[in-house]
Design a protein around this nucleic acid. Structure first.
Length: 285
DNA sequence: CATCAACCCTGAGAGC
DNA sequence: TGCTCTCAGGGTTGAT
């Protein structure tokens, strides 16, 4: 499931080319094909297809978990959600593969294919990217984010850390996996109230977020369920998906609980939480 | 504002 | 072997 590191890995491959395929920067779109109309969020499929021909891909960028194709006069924004992937293939005239939802054919005979088994992914074509991206919080690597400003952000809310960190309007780019990893590295319990963090803890959390994201990017992301560019970060998880396995720090079995409708993995020793508060949480559900 | 549940989907894994 | 059932999960929407 692509989060910031997986999306960054795909964006770099599309921008620069690599083992997985050639770069698409500079290519000119000849036509588009839609195989699953609901994958196109906006505009309506007919307008979407009508506006593509002749557009040049000036740049491939990332904002949060969005892939951003800069078409000069407008932008093509792609969110992979759970199972989406993008591939550059030769346009050999073959029928679309299973789960192909959208394709762009370039003038030079290459094509960009959007494949998405679970159909959660969405694509927007818009002259105003902020209409889609405007509600996003800051990038985790934004240099304006400091321990002080992050602490102020956390203090301004009063929410459980885990769902708050996954809230894209609060901070943009973390998903379930990297949130669990960051909280474990920062030694903070997923249920801890955001307003209760000290400046030191906020700084530690910000550093942990950046650390796990950097590690993920360095390893080309994690490959869970689907293979993403050979990423192998899944072999280096500290907590995520390790229920019952020893905590890499203290050896205590990792526990799993549901927080904000998401499976959440943590070490009960390294990430302490008052037992009374935990019981209140369990009783209140 | 915070929390919660339902929804959109399919493939994988468990149980029988 | 093959069927049915459950679950996972990002983000949106609506209710409390």
């Amino acid at each position: 499931m692509p989060e910031l590191p997986e999306v960054e890995t795909i964006v770099r491959a599309l921008a620069n080319g690599g083992r997985e395929g050639p770069a698409i920067t500079g290519r000119i779109i000849q036509t588009g094909e839609i195989y699953w109309p609901r994958s196109v969020a906006a505009p309506a499929p007919e307008q979407f297809l009508a506006r593509l021909p002749g557009k040049r891909i000036a740049a491939v960028k990332r904002r949060a978990k969005f892939i951003w194709l800069d078409l000069e006069s407008e932008s093509l924004l792609i969110h992979l959600r759970m199972s989406g992937d993008l591939r550059v293939l030769p346009a050999d005239g073959a029928a679309p593969a299973v789960h192909d939802r959208l394709a762009l054919d370039f003038e030079d005979g290459q094509r960009l294919v959007f494949n998405d088994p679970r159909k959660f992914g969405r694509v927007w074509l818009t002259e105003d990217p902020s209409s889609v991206l405007g509600g996003l919080g800051p990038e985790p690597f934004d240099p304006l984010l400091t321990a002080q400003t992050f602490h102020a952000m956390l203090s301004a809310r009063s929410r459980q850390l885990k769902p708050l960190l996954m809230d894209q309007s609060f901070l943009a780019g973390l998903g379930n996996i990297y949130t669990d990893e960051a909280l474990h590295l920062a030694r903070l319990h997923p249920l801890k109230n955001s307003a209760d963090l000290s400046i030191t803890q906020a700084g530690d959390l910000l550093a942990a977020i950046r650390s796990v994201l950097e590690a993920g990017i360095q390893r080309n992301g994690a490959s869970i369920d689907w293979m993403y560019r050979g990423g192998d970060f899944q072999n280096h998880f500290r907590a995520y998906g390790r229920t019952g396995l020893p905590c890499p720090v203290c050896g205590t079995p990792i526990q799993r609980m549901v927080v904000g409708q998401r499976g959440t993995h943590y070490c009960p020793v390294c990430q302490p939480f008052s037992s009374s508060a935990l019981q209140a949480y369990a009783g209140g559900k």
